[in-house]
């Protein structure tokens, strides 16, 4: 059995930042493994540990910089990795969902995995749609927002989908299929020293769009960011100032006013 995990390196923004034009300058950005993908990696590695002959392959779209993040996935137990990059991709400010699905679908066609795990969403652009779009493009089955996953003996998969308000949907899915993984489904491991050492020996295959048989039309998305701003807020917050003992006593006065304590 083969499991493909999509792994994205996401940009996170520091608490204090500026916007220049339609982007946040590099100096305010940090790059990290997407939180949801950490859970997707763990789910794949646990599946490989629980069953014989499961190969876990990761796929990432990104420039050479992202190899550091890919090594984390390899150190956690992914067997080998694919990194897709192309100078043409560097020119795009935003890869939209169909563009990402088109690229990943070629990898699915080449690798022919039984199971694809993606994160529910990426922390930066937050489309929350690539996994299902990939399934539809690759003619795979799917389940979105999965917080429990069980591979059954008959080759089907039983999942829980985390709906709103503490309700879970119990669903049986035929393979091959894509599952978008919700945080909290498992406890992602830290990479061990041994894992980090072994990761250095594992393969990261570099793949261009041409290698995938794609040309620029496949990624020429329909979306263009035309403005970026900090959300306007209508905050009417009353801030308490001073050191901790001062703000604490102001809060106690507030509790008294609100009638929640007898001061």
């Amino acid at each position: 059995m083969k499991v493909l995990v999509t792994v994205k390196e996401v940009a996170t923004v520091e608490d204090t930042f500026e916007i220049e034009g339609t982007a946040i300058p590099e100096r305010y950005l940090e790059y990290d493994l997407n939180e949801w993908d950490d859970y997707a990696i763990e789910e794949a590695v646990q599946l490989a540990e629980a069953h014989d002959d499961v190969e876990v392959v990761s796929v990432t779209i990104g420039p050479p910089r992202v190899e550091e993040t890919i090594r984390i996935a390899l150190a956690k137990g992914v067997d080998r990795a694919i990194r897709i990059w192309d100078d043409e991709l560097a020119d795009y400010q935003l890869l939209d969902v169909p563009a990402k699905a088109n690229i990943l679908a070629e990898v699915v066609a080449q690798e022919d995995p039984d199971i694809v795990f993606t994160g529910v969403q990426a922390d930066d652009d937050a489309f929350g749609a690539t996994g299902v779009a990939l399934a539809a493009t690759s003619d795979y089955q799917w389940a979105a927002v999965v917080n429990q996953f069980e591979l059954e003996d008959d080759g089907t998969v039983s999942v829980h989908r985390e709906l709103e308000g503490g309700i879970e949907e119990l669903t049986e899915v035929q393979l091959p299929a894509v599952f978008t993984i919700q945080t909290g489904i498992n406890e992602p491991r830290y990479a061990s020293l041994r894992g980090i050492r072994m990761a250095q020996q594992k393969e990261i295959a570099e793949v261009t769009l041409a290698d995938l048989g794609l040309d620029i039309d496949a990624i020429d998305g329909a979306l263009e960011v035309t403005s970026m701003a900090e959300p306007e807020t209508e905050s009417e917050v009353t801030l308490f100032e001073g050191d901790a003992s001062s703000t604490a006593s102001q809060l106690v006065d507030l509790f008294d006013d609100l009638g929640v304590i007898d001061a």
């Binding site: 939209d96 969902v97 699905a101 489309f127 749609a129 299902v132 799917w142 989908r161």
Partner: peptide, 24 residues
């Protein structure tokens, strides 16, 4: 809706129609 169920079918609808998808 960008609900858990909306996320489970809207991307497939956009794929089937061959049109852009903008979420949330």
């Amino acid at each position: 809706p960008q609900s858990v169920n909306g996320m489970d079918y809207a991307p497939a609808v956009a794929t089937d129609m061959g049109v852009p998808l903008v979420t949330d």
